[in-house]
Design a protein around this nucleic acid. Structure first.
Length: 493
DNA sequence: ACCTTATGACCCC
DNA sequence: TGGGGTCCCTAAGG
């Protein structure tokens, strides 16, 4: 399935184990490691993209897979055939750059057949952030403008968990799964707190509070906008709307707080392969690369990457941590390489301009290929604009900068970035199969009939499959009984 | 059909 | 450095 706009699966590879000796002692060169052997099996098994292939061939059965996999891994390199790599790829393991390139092609071919699989609109405000579950392949955590968080397994009808937010002012800038306990989420909120939320209902732990501005309405002037967690450093970074970056221990002790940017820090991120490397992005139109071992003030960054507009995000590539993908607030996507931070390797023109009432659009990496996924917001002022230009999800090759695919489904009206609804895409044949499966479950549970009537005006494209599709597309998490009664929902147009 | 609400970024004093 | 006004121009709910 295709990441909608914010897959951010980097944490799959971001965790402790890989950042071993080499990463610790190394500089930039070590970023480019190809090592597949060190990747823990558990990680390989659960990388999101693998799930479909696994299901298809019935290999998704814990113990057996582990054994087989282990056998494969212990083959000497020279004995390995393409089968080994294909298999390894299916399991989500990291692969050599060349092979990744070669496997990318069939993946791209399958991408063109991706269709909307399921949607959910569980919030009364727009979606502001999304994170894939670190180990469960079909589960996402999604945060809203009102502070709500939903944990949703879209392969199953009734598996969700909903944490109600505080409403206005509790806008969630960013969420990250704890690398230690997957039931916990670090949450940066517009109410000024950085907290560790528990998805199983245990008490919320406030990790940090943005400085009090002294006004009546406490904290309204300062709030955290972004978070990241490093398992190996046992550290959390966060950035606020005034340009401060804070480094904390995972339990909340403040290590330092420095004003590293002139304006809002939209994104902070640890590098997955090099534990001391940190990237920050800001509306001050810069991305800065830092050496965590040596941060004193705003001037002693390793590199500045000046942009022409405010920057929404700067993500390290999950494949090797050696590239950085930035999105500005108008029409540029950039790919930088750690081999030369002085200029972007690719400057991709792309319309995704900032608008007050839209969640900022952020180009993100596919978790296993150097592919870039980004929502298009057609702009009459953008060169090449046409009147009927669609609000697609665009996919670019991160190595060439070429656009390789556009996803579009008329059922998903509006701007298809992380914005108003949660959209899950999957391969067409899988969509059919899975929708049938889910529909059967719905009928069995006697819960299929009311969703259609409640939701007028949905456009249907194919009369043959429309009923089925409409039911699943309009299916709301609300009907699973997890949505609070006082929360109004948004349906499909 | 029309109005309201929604804590973004920038410019100016 | 901070408050007020303006512009960017979506989308749902009443």
């Amino acid at each position: 399935m295709a990441p909608v706009n914010q897959p951010k699966d980097k944490k799959h590879e971001k965790t402790h184990e890989h950042r071993s000796e080499e990463a610790k002692s190394a500089g930039k060169r070590k970023l480019d490691c190809e090592g597949l052997e060190n990747v823990p099996l558990a990680k390989k098994l659960f990388l999101r993209k693998t799930s479909k292939a696994q299901e298809k061939i019935g290999w998704n059965r814990g113990g057996t897979v582990m054994k087989n996999t282990r056998a494969f891994f212990h083959q000497p390199k020279w004995q390995r055939s393409i089968v080994h790599y294909v298999y390894q790829n299916m399991l989500g393991g990291s692969i050599r750059a060349q092979l990744r390139q070669c496997l990318q092609l069939p993946f791209l071919r399958s991408l063109t057949s991706y269709r909307l699989f399921r949607t959910a609109s569980p919030f009364d405000r727009r979606v502001t952030c999304l994170e894939w579950h670190p180990t469960h392949p079909s589960t996402v955590a999604v945060g809203s403008k009102g502070g709500d968080i939903i944990l949703w397994d879209y392969e199953v009808l009734t598996k969700t968990c909903f944490i109600k937010g505080k409403g206005p002012g509790d806008s969630l800038g960013d969420i990250k799964f704890s690398p230690y306990e997957a039931v916990k989420l670090y949450v940066a909120s517009g109410d000024g707190t950085l907290s560790l939320q528990d998805l199983e209902g245990r008490a919320v732990q406030v990790i940090s509070r943005a400085p009090d501005c002294g006004h009546e309405n406490h904290n309204v002037c300062c709030w955290y906008c972004s978070v990241d967690v490093s398992a190996s450093c046992r550290a959390v970074v966060t950035g606020d709307n005034l340009g401060n970056v804070v480094l904390l221990s995972t339990s909340g002790e403040e290590i330092w707080r420095l004003k590293l940017h002139k304006k809002k820090v939209t994104h902070v991120e640890f590098n997955s392969r090099c534990e001391w490397l940190l990237a920050t992005a800001s509306v001050d139109q810069t991305v800065k690369i830092w050496d965590l071992r040596n941060i004193k003030d705003k001037a002693n960054f390793l590199h500045v990457l000046p942009h022409d507009k405010p920057v929404n995000a700067a993500y390290f590539s999950p494949t090797d941590g050696a590239k950085l993908l930035s999105t500005d607030q108008r029409n540029e996507i950039r790919v930088y390489s750690c081999s030369d931070w002085t200029k972007p390797q690719h400057l991709i023109p792309h319309p995704h301009r900032q608008f007050q009432h839209l969640t900022p659009i952020k180009a993100t990496w596919h978790p296993r290929y150097d592919l870039i996924v980004v929502g298009r917001y057609p702009d009459p002022k953008f060169p090449g604009y046409t009147v009927n230009e669609l609000r697609t999800v665009d996919i670019f090759d991160g190595n060439t900068g070429e656009m390789v695919c556009q996803l579009y489904d008329p059922n998903a009206s509006g701007i298809i970035s992380v914005s108003f609804n949660i959209l899950i895409w999957s391969r067409e044949e899988m969509v059919m199969k899975k929708q049938e499966h889910l529909l059967k479950a719905m009928t069995e549970q006697g819960i299929g009939s009311r969703s259609l009537s409640r939701r007028g005006g949905q456009k249907q494209t194919n009369p043959g499959t429309s009923t089925l599709k409409a039911k699943l597309l309009s299916w709301e998490v609300e009907e699973m009984g997890t949505k609070p009664k006082d929360s109004k929902s948004r349906g499909w147009k």
